[in-house]
Design a protein around this nucleic acid. Structure first.
Length: 484
RNA sequence: GGCCCCAUCGUCUAGCGGUUAGGACAUCGGCCUCUCACGCCGGUAACGCGGGUUCGAUUCCCGCUGGGGUCGCCA
C-alpha cells in the first residue's frame, strides 16, 4: 500500500533546518513509494502560533521544492489541515475516552499544581514533580469549574514500539505520568491531537526527529486506549551544532530562508540534509531524482551528528559547479536576483558566456554575483589593492597589448591567448609583467579568470577599451605621484 | 536525578566475524599556472575502555565511561 506520511510543523517561527530535514525524509519516502505527503499545521498553541509563521514555513517548503499533496492551499480529503480547526473532534474523542474510562477530567488548577511543585521542591530540591492523580478516580465533578482531560496511564507494565531506525524501544509505564490531553481552554496538547490527526488522516508512517522519541510511548498508549492501529514509526538522529549542542541561532544559520538569502540553492541545502543521517555507499552528491530513487529507511543512521558548515558549503558548491545539477538556464535565473541586488542589469549573452568561468569559482549565488560584477560595469570598479598594479611603466604595455589584439581573428579565447603570447614574446617581456596590469584593467581586480577568457566574454570593443582605459589610469597615477 | 537513545579519522560516513579499516569535507605537502579558482598527485588522521562469545572481533552480548534527548494546561 502506498504510504501516507506527513510533516507537521508548529507555526511558531521560520522553517528550521532540522525541520526541513524531517520534511525532506518524509517527502522522499512519499515520492519514492508513490505515496502521499501531507502537510499539517500544529497551531494549537495560541500564544506562539502566527499566520506569518505559517506563511514563512510554506514559502520555505516551496522554495525547497518539497511539494505537499494535501494540506494548506492544496486541500485534500482529510482536512482541515490546521489543528485549530479540528477542536470539536478532539473534544469528541476526549469525552469518549472519559466514558470508556481511559481518561478523566482533572479539576486541579494550575495554582494547586504549582503549590504542590513548590512544596516538593522545598522538601527535595532534586525531585521531579509527578502529578499524583488526584482526580484519577473521581466523578464528583464540580459545576462551572474548568477542567483538563488527563490520560489514565497504566501504572504497571511497559510500552514497546518498533522503530524503523532504532529498532525496538521499550519504556516502563511508571515512567509516565497522567499527562494532559486537553487544556482547560479546550485546545488539545501535542500528544493527543497528533495521535487523533495521524489516525484520522490515514497516516501510515510517522517520521520525525529523535527529540520526539520520548513521547512516542505516550502516543502508543493512546493508540491502544483508542483501539486504533499505530502507524509505523521512524525517528531521525538529531542534527546538533558543531559543538554538539542543540542547534540554535547562536551556532549557525538555522532558518532555511537564511540559506536561501545567502545564495545557496535548494538542492545544495537538500543534498547536505539528505546525507546527514542517511547514506548511500560512497555517494555524496545527488540530484533530486537520484535522492528519490535511493532513499530508504534501512540506511538511516542512529547516531546524532554535528552540522558542519564547511562540508555544507562544499556540497552546495558542487551543485553550482556541475551543469548536470544546475543547468545554465536555472543558474542564470537564480543568480539574477543577486545581480539585481548589486544594481546590475546583466544582458543574457554576456551572462551566458561568463557562466562557465563562474561555475568553478562561485561558492554561492551571492558569490557568483560578485564574480560576475565587472562584466556588467563600464568601467569596472577598481579595487584599492588593484590600483597599485597600474604603475607608470604598465601604461605603455597596456597600449601595446591593445594594439596587438585589434586584428585578432576570430575573437575567441584560444586565438586571443595565442596572440597575447606571440606579442609578449615579440616584445621581449614576460607574460607575468603584463598579466596583472591587464587583469586589473579588464576586471578592476587582482584575481580573475584567464585574461583571454575574460576578453572573449567582454568582446573585442569593450576589452580593448578597458585596456586603453587602464593605460590612462596608469598615466594618471604616475602624474599624481609626480611631485609638484 | 528518573526514563529513553547513541558511540569508526576534527566532521559527515562505508563496514553488517577474517579488509593494508574505504570515501567525502577540513587540514598539510606538491603539481598545473598570467592571478584566482577548478583539477590532479601525495601525507597526517578513527574503531572510547573493560569483560565475555568465537579459531578469529570495528562488527555479537554485558558492564563502564562519554555524549545526546526527554521529563509542561509547548510542540
Amino acid at each position: 500500500m502506498a504510504p501516507r506520511v506527513r510533516f507537521a510543523p508548529s507555526p511558531s517561527g521560520y522553517l528550521h533546518i532540522g525541520g526541513a530535514r524531517t520534511a525532506l525524509f518524509n517527502w522522499l519516502w512519499a515520492r519514492r513509494q508513490g505515496g502521499t505527503f501531507v502537510l499539517r499545521i500544529e497551531d494549537t498553541d495560541q500564544e506562539r502560533s502566527s499566520v506569518e509563521s505559517v506563511r514563512a514555513i510554506l514559502d520555505a517548503l516551496r522554495w525547497l521544492g518539497l511539494d505537499w499533496d494535501e494540506g494548506p492551499e492544496a486541500g485534500g480529503s482529510h482536512g482541515p489541515y490546521f489543528q485549530s480547526e479540528r477542536r470539536a473532534r478532539y473534544r469528541e474523542v476526549a469525552d469518549a475516552m472519559v466514558e470508556a474510562g481511559t481518561a478523566y477530567r482533572c479539576y486541579a488548577t494550575k495554582e494547586e499544581l504549582e503549590q504542590a511543585r513548590a512544596e516538593l521542591k522545598a522538601r527535595d530540591p532534586k525531585a521531579q514533580f509527578v502529578y499524583p492523580g488526584w482526580w484519577r478516580d473521581r466523578r464528583d465533578w464540580p459545576d462551572g469549574k474548568p477542567w483538563v482531560y488527563r490520560f489514565k496511564t497504566p501504572r504497571t507494565g511497559a510500552t514497546d514500539f518498533d522503530d524503523l531506525v532504532f529498532g525496538r524501544v521499550s519504556t516502563p509505564n511508571d515512567a509516565q505520568q497522567d499527562f494532559v490531553l486537553m487544556r482547560s481552554d479546550g485546545f488539545p496538547l501535542y500528544n493527543f491531537s497528533c495521535v487523533i490527526d495521524d489516525h484520522d488522516m490515514g497516516i501510515t508512517l510517522v517520521a520525525r526527529g529523535r527529540d520526539h522519541i520520548g513521547n512516542t510511548p505516550q502516543q502508543v498508549l493512546l493508540y491502544e486506549a483508542l483501539g486504533w492501529p499505530a502507524p509505523q514509526l521512524a525517528h531521525l538522529p538529531m542534527m546538533l551544532s558543531a559543538k554538539g549542542e542543540k542547534l540554535s541561532k547562536r551556532h549557525a544559520a538555522v532558518s532555511v530562508s537564511e540559506y536561501r538569502d545567502r545564495g545557496y540553492t535548494a538542492m545544495g541545502v537538500l543534498n547536505y540534509l539528505a546525507r546527514f543521517g542517511w547514506s548511500h555507499g560512497d555517494q555524496e552528491i545527488f540530484a533530486r531524482d537520484e535522492l528519490v530513487a535511493a532513499f530508504d529507511w534501512a540506511s538511516v543512521n542512529r547516531a546524532d551528528g554535528k552540522f558542519d558548515e564547511k562540508k555544507f558549503a562544499d556540497v552546495a558548491f558542487e551543485h553550482l559547479k556541475q551543469p548536470r545539477l544546475t543547468s545554465d538556464a536555472e543558474y542564470v535565473e537564480r543568480v539574477r536576483p543577486f545581480l539585481a541586488a548589486r544594481g546590475l542589469d546583466a544582458d543574457e549573452p554576456t551572462l551566458c558566456a561568463a557562466l562557465p568561468l563562474i561555475r568553478e569559482r562561485a561558492r554561492t549565488l551571492a558569490d557568483a554575483a560578485h564574480h560576475l560584477d565587472f562584466y556588467f560595469r563600464e568601467p569596472p570598479e577598481l579595487d584599492p589593492a588593484a590600483a597599485k598594479v597600474l604603475t607608470p611603466q604598465s601604461a605603455e604595455l597596456l597600449e601595446g597589448l591593445a594594439a596587438a589584439l585589434t586584428a585578432v581573428e576570430p575573437w575567441e579565447g584560444a586565438a586571443i591567448d595565442e596572440a597575447i603570447r606571440a606579442w609578449v614574446e615579440a616584445r621581449g617581456v614576460s607574460l607575468k609583467d603584463v598579466a596583472q596590469p591587464a587583469r586589473v584593467s579588464l576586471s578592476g581586480r587582482t584575481a580573475s579568470p584567464a585574461l583571454h577568457d575574460v576578453m572573449a566574454v567582454l568582446g573585442r570593443a569593450r576589452a580593448l577599451a578597458r585596456l586603453r582605459h587602464g593605460a590612462t589610469l596608469a598615466r594618471e597615477a604616475a602624474a599624481a605621484r609626480a611631485p609638484g
